[in-house]
Each structure stands twice: as C-alpha cells, then as structure tokens.
Simulated scan of single mutants.
Amino acid sequence: MSRRTRVIAAAVMAPVAIAAVLFLPTPYLAGLLAALLMLGLWEWTLLAGVRERLSRVSYLAANALLMAALVWGSGHGGLFTLKLASLVGAIWWLFALLWLARFDFAAADTAMARVIKLLAGSFSVIPAWAAICWLHASQPYGPGWALFAISIAWAADSGAYFVGVRFGKRKLAPRISPGKSWEGLIGGLISAILLALAVTPLFGLPWSSAPGLVLLTVVTALISVAGDLFESLLKRHAGIKDSSNLIPGHGGLLDRVDSLLAALPVFVVGKMLWLGH
C-alpha cells in the first residue's frame, strides 16, 4: 500500500475523530467507541490464536456485557465504576511492561496462552473505553481533556516517526519492533511536551501547573509506546504484520489504537492523582 494512500486515510480519519470527541454527547461517543472497540477485540482474537467463530463471538459478547455493566454501574455510582476500570487498566499496563521484557511468555500456541492473551485483550480494551468515557464526561473541559489525552499518543507517535526516520540509529526493541529507535522515542517525548505546554492556558491552568501537566504527559507518552510495542509483540507471536486490512494503508483498527489503549487509563489515573478529579 502506498504512502499516499496512508496519508489520505489519515487525513480523513483524524478530522472525523476530532469532531466526534469534541461535539458528540458522551453517551453517543461511548456507543460509537464501544462498537469500534468490538472490532478491535475481534482482531485481538486472531492475535490470540482463536479462530473458531463461536469462541470469538462469545468473547465479544462477554466484553460487551462488561461494558454494559460498567455503564449501568456508572449511572448509580457517579461514574465510580468507570474510574475503577481505569485504575485496573493502569495497573494492568504495569504487568504488560514485564511481559514486554519477557518476549517468549505465552508465545507458544497453547490453550493457556490463548486464554492469557484474551484476558490481556479485555484488560487493554475495556479500561481504555471506560477511561475515555469518564474523561469525556468530566467537568470542566471534558471533551478537551479527552482530545488532549488522545493527542498525546498521536504526538508521541508522529514525533517518534519523523525523528526516527531522520536520526534513528539505536534500536529500542529490535526483537519486537525493529523500526523503533531511542532517538525516535526522544523525538516523540519532545513533541508531547510541546503539546502539553501549548494546551496549558487552554484549560485555564496557571503556568505553575505546567510542570505537573508535563510530567503527566511524559508518563502517558511513554506508556503509549508500551501499548504500541505490546500489540507488536502479539503480532510477532502470531506471525502477522497487521491486525487486519480494515483501514487502507494502516492495517487494522488495533494498529491505529494500540498506543491509546495504554495511554488513556494511565492518563485518567494520573489526572485524578494530579488534580483530584
């Protein structure tokens, strides 16, 4: 697929995504994202080595019911269930970091490995969905905060790509993703920091809050890279290049949201610790 096709697809998707986050009411955004993430979980089942259609449908149904339970609980507990799910997701990504350090863990195509990877899918997708829903519904500037959290991952990914292409020499994780470099990682972090400084006044924050926002941004950007690497690890295990061919020039849905799956719950937990809400 040509680079031009990739650029055109991105030019179409980005404005649509931004408009949805900024202008859709939270319930409608939550429903749209739930539907999209179900597609992502469908792709995840293949990464986990599950190919029986009934098993894949059952897995999606179980996760859809979990989402519905979180929505029901949030209606009775002041969004507490969404916050709790976000916390679970942030904790999960600490374990995922250990998994990245053990490339061969669950690499064999066994029943236990498939179960572990399916659980990893639920722990990755459900908390990310809960986090963006809670963030979008929060006050003040809920949609703005949601877009900012998403933009951190975008900035880190774009900065890493352009700096890595131009200056990348030292491989970040050659066994998992040979194209990533330490130079690219630094470029991505700088891009994310500049974004944080640019939005500080937009949220009505005093400049004295900038160091806290920058710290939250750096942590979120770093964990977004872990999300990207984790999906790459699963694809290496499965022996495939893309999670699907759903998006021209970009692969599957998971290939576009892998970094967000990690970034969103960590950002939400960090924001709650930093601002208290």
Score class of each variant (00 low, 15 high):
15 P>N: 06
66 L>C: 15
222 L>Y: 00
254 L>T: 06
251 G>H: 10
16 V>A: 15
34 A>C: 11
252 G>W: 02
4 R>S: 14
194 L>S: 12
43 E>T: 05
25 P>N: 07
174 P>L: 13
274 W>Y: 14
166 R>N: 02
195 L>I: 13
91 I>H: 00
63 N>T: 11
23 F>S: 07
11 A>T: 03
120 A>M: 11
160 A>Q: 08
172 L>W: 08
134 W>C: 06
216 L>G: 09
29 L>G: 01
251 G>K: 08
206 P>V: 02
47 L>E: 06
175 R>S: 06
197 L>R: 11
226 A>L: 09
28 Y>I: 12
274 W>K: 02
204 G>R: 14
148 F>L: 02
168 G>W: 12
6 R>A: 13
11 A>M: 08
160 A>F: 08
54 L>H: 13
191 S>L: 13
199 V>G: 06
221 A>N: 07
142 G>V: 12
58 S>T: 10
104 D>E: 14
24 L>D: 03
85 A>N: 04
267 F>K: 08
225 V>S: 12
211 P>H: 07
231 E>V: 11
259 S>V: 04
154 W>D: 00
7 V>Q: 10
25 P>C: 04
30 A>D: 03
89 G>T: 09
45 T>R: 01
131 A>K: 07
54 L>T: 15
188 G>H: 09
82 L>M: 07
227 G>W: 05
52 E>Q: 15
269 V>Y: 06
50 V>Q: 03
185 L>C: 13
153 A>E: 05
62 A>H: 07
35 A>D: 05
261 L>W: 04
277 H>S: 08
215 L>S: 06
179 G>Q: 15
258 D>Y: 00
227 G>T: 04
28 Y>R: 06
236 R>L: 07
261 L>V: 03
24 L>P: 00
258 D>L: 00
110 T>H: 03
151 S>A: 15
10 A>V: 14
233 L>F: 07
106 A>V: 10
67 M>A: 08
61 A>V: 13
133 C>S: 13
169 K>C: 09
44 W>S: 01
8 I>A: 11
277 H>L: 00
259 S>F: 02
73 G>K: 02
89 G>D: 10
151 S>T: 15
91 I>R: 02
113 A>F: 13
187 G>T: 12
260 L>Y: 11
75 G>P: 08
74 S>C: 14
223 I>L: 05
57 V>L: 14
105 F>R: 11
211 P>F: 10
61 A>H: 01
32 L>G: 05
268 V>T: 07
216 L>N: 01
162 F>W: 13
189 L>C: 09
54 L>M: 13
13 M>A: 14
31 G>I: 08
271 K>M: 05
79 L>T: 02
35 A>E: 00
237 H>I: 03
140 P>L: 09
118 L>I: 10
126 I>V: 15
182 W>C: 04
251 G>W: 12
72 W>D: 15
30 A>Q: 05
5 T>Y: 08
2 S>V: 05
138 S>E: 07
187 G>K: 10
174 P>K: 11
10 A>T: 15
